[in-house]
Design a protein around this nucleic acid. Structure first.
Length: 295
DNA sequence: GGTAGACCTGGACGC
DNA sequence: GCGTCCAGGTCTACC
């Protein structure tokens, strides 16, 4: 099966893959040499299908060894369009970025799109797994979570789809804590899954870009385990860029870049990017920082 | 509204 | 090999 999809220009699959760390988290995989992204997806009808996504002149082509029906192809089309943000428009941001030397690269590299998962449940779980741990811990916990609870790909049992809220809601805190080794995050993720299954939380409706940012942020902050950093990260993923993902690294980078390395407050980090308005999160994220290069 | 301490894990380090 | 320390966001209790 092959599905060709068009992307709004400019587009670069490589820039989406490397937009943040998601491509390194299961069930994503990627190959820089082939410039391809892989993902094992759980379809609504229960099938698990492996996808390989490659760049074309107009956008991407999705390849799969599975034979799929029309509804399945439509679901995959919708999912990949969302995951790669194929329809997102960044011309307004590029117009502003052209005037900033530290953002000169973004239009040439077609940066701005952030790789996301098919469901906000997956992105929320992964975001919780990035908090209060090193990146290696996030990779380990995500892999354990996917391998332990996700549906197996029939033709390759080493691959699994990301678990559904239903699959997680059936387990218990002790298993997530001691077997999956999610630590204190276990009750947060269990509660998240159970709230979705019970209908108390409609996470996927927050993907609607027309919802006011503040409303979405308030709902995200009400989820246990989601604080300022995690909410900002999830807001970026659903297309709201007016909050900064301020983590411990942000203080180092902003201090080094704008304050001569002296200790700075959260407000000072915010003030630096205030002029970028609704694009401030993206300006911060794509900034050509001098701090890491000089370390 | 602001702050201190606890949460949990893995890696780095010293012995 | 073992013990200790530390980094990493969020929550809760307290002021």
């Amino acid at each position: 099966m092959q599905i060709k999809l068009r992307a709004k220009k400019p587009f670069s699959l490589s820039s989406v893959i490397h937009s943040h760390g998601w491509a390194r988290l299961s069930p994503f995989d990627y190959d820089d040499e082939k410039n391809s992204l892989e993902y094992t997806i759980h379809l609504k009808n229960g099938r698990t299908v492996h996808l390989q996504i490659e760049e074309t002149a107009d956008g991407v082509v999705i390849k799969s060894k599975s034979n799929l029906g029309t509804p399945e192809e439509e679901e995959i089309t919708d999912s990949v369009t969302w995951m790669l943000a194929l329809n997102e428009e960044f011309s307004e941001f590029y117009e502003l970025a052209r005037r900033e030397p530290k953002l000169q690269h973004v239009e040439d590299k077609a940066q701005g799109r952030l790789l996301r998962s098919p469901t906000l449940f997956e992105d929320t779980v992964k975001t919780i797994l990035t908090t209060n741990t090193a990146w290696g811990g996030t990779i380990r916990m995500t892999e354990a979570f996917v391998n332990q609870f996700g549906d197996t790909l029939p033709e390759d049992t080493s691959r699994h789809a990301f678990p559904t809220p239903n699959e997680i809601a059936k387990t218990d805190e002790e298993t997530l804590r001691n077997d999956t080794r999610l630590g204190y995050r276990a009750p947060y993720i269990l509660q998240l899954a159970r709230d979705i299954v019970s209908g108390e939380l409609d996470l996927e409706s927050m993907k609607d870009i027309d919802l006011p940012t503040e409303d979405v942020r308030k709902k995200l902050l009400a989820i246990k385990g989601i604080g300022n950093y995690a909410a900002a990260n999830l807001l970026m993923l659903v297309g709201h860029y007016n909050y900064l993902t301020i983590d411990s690294w942000a203080f180092k980078m902003v201090s080094h870049e704008f304050f001569g390395g002296k200790p700075i407050s959260r407000d000072e980090v915010e003030q630096v990017f205030e002029k970028w308005g609704k694009w401030k999160g993206l300006a911060y994220w794509l900034w050509d920082w001098s701090y890491p290069a000089e370390q």
